[in-house]
Amino acid sequence: MLRDLWILLWKDLKVARSYRFAFIVQTVSIVAPLILLVFLERALGDVSVPSISEYGGNYVSFMLLGVVITTFSGTSLSAFSNSLRTAQVTGTLEALLFTRSRLPVLIIGLSLYPFVRESLRMAVYIGGGFVVLGLAVSTVNILPAITVFLLFLLVMLSMGLMAAGFTLVFKQGDPVTLLLVAGSGFLSGVVYPVDVLPVWLQHIAQALPQTHAIEALRLTVLSNASFSDVSTQLIVLGGFAVLMFPLSVLAFSVAMDQARSEGSLAHF
């Protein structure tokens, strides 16, 4: 299995590198936002915002974490469906499905490259946060932060698998990613806390896993929150994971059978 994953990552890296200009732009775009961060820090670094005091009060750190999680959740949501769509459009999907590699391994393998790229971007952002914004390592409670992140990743990947199933059958117009990405940017507290929203919108925001993940990660990274401090968010994310994972596997498998039945695996 690891060899399968590695060869698919190698293939995508090789293909990405063959588009030289795009590869350079992508690489530069990973570090470019650090410049933005420097100027934001100059403009707003000393400003203390009362409404975010429970996260340490520094707005740039607050926003940085929101943006990082949202960007990563967008990648997780769309990686499977994008990779399937790319394989459909380039025409390699049927040939890949005809190998001895198992379907889940193929899907994960085909999505590894964007994940690696986005993980790198996330690491640069967070690293930049420590260097540019002077985030203190002492405020980070690493174990709860990692637990929140992994649970959130599982939820996003499950939803991403569901979106991939949609792509297999309908090819374009995946509503899962559209709703979750559009909804989360507006409702999940990416650049402002959820508390500032009208009450009825706050209720809707609670239905989005990103809201809980962003809040828990801010608390664990910026305010040294413990497992018990973020237990509510962990339970909610765990609930999402328990519900979404089997549901998405089922949905994807139904979509796969549907595409094979309609003979539309290679259509795009």
């Binding site: 293939k11 090789k14 293909v15 063959s18 588009y19 380039t90 025409g91 390699t92 040939a95």
Partner: peptide
């Protein structure tokens, strides 16, 4: 073996 040339990875 498909007759579809695109089933190969063209940039490899």
């Amino acid at each position: 073996v498909s007759n579809e040339e695109r089933s190969l990875i063209w940039r490899l």
